[in-house]
Amino acid sequence: MSYTLWIILTGCLVGITCGMSGVLLLLKKMSMIADAISHTVLLGIVGAFFVSQSLNGLPMLIGAAVVGLATAFFVESLHRSGIQSDAAIGVVFTSFFALGVVLISFIGDQVHLDTKHALMGEIAFVPWDTLQINGESYGPVAVWMLGIVLILNLTLIAAFYKEMKISTFDPQYAKLIGVPVVLVHYLLMGMVSLSTVASFDSVGAILVVAMLIVPGATAYLLTDRFLTLLLLSGIVGIFSAIIGYGAAVYWNVSIAGAMASATGLLFMVAFLFSPKHGWLMKKVKQRRLAAGS
């Protein structure tokens, strides 16, 4: 497969993985938790580097997952101790992220991990970092990691579809009728953390946040059905990746930044022109009603 196709495939996998788990957070009104986790994951990766002295998959995955869950946990604890939730999110993620950035500056030039990398990722290098078994190359590591996380996410969503739906819509009622609400919540947090980690190294914090929040929001303006919403979030993520890549190549700019901008562009289109919930479409409808009566 060609260089370009690998990059586009990686972008699409990020789009579908983050899009589908992010829209569940959107419905729980926890989008900013996604923002927080995708920043703090940096600390997990740097921490794992200090412990294992390498940037290999597994320690990084564990470190990032631990810090991701810790973020969710600290935000909830602070909130429960009486701090308003937006401020709690603000304090936790800026602290962790700042710590991560400062630690990176101690690593210096030893590895290809720097602050710019943390924000923008290195998606252009994805095709070169391939999975090697017995000297054979089996495609980029990032694609494998994202693929595995995607399959895991899909399995979890399929298995706990009912539970996720009920506990998102009405958590108190869910608890009453015996849905394991807390378990489902942390499963979701785990899904978000894993999606973030798998995406972070190749596309950086900006694009992870964008893909977690924006495609879901776009889909939310386009449909009123739960299953369609999940699928559409993934599809919007894929489209954003493709449009973004095209724009990045055309203007020779950051691929991650361009993909993030593309999510914004698609959101704007839905915001204005969605048949049911678009701003302009609603206005047109109102005008027609007014003219008719």
Binding site: L27, K29, K162, K165, I166, T168, F169, D170, Q172, Y173, A174, L176, I177, G178, V179, Y220, T223, D224, R225, F226, T228, L229
Partner: peptide, 30 residues
Amino acid sequence: KQLIGYVPQRSEVDWDFPTNALDIVLMGRY
């Protein structure tokens, strides 16, 4: 717990949630 039925206040949930009436009622059969 299995003997308890509950009707919460309407304002406690977000009615923008993407689903239809039948689906909500099916939640009662969980």
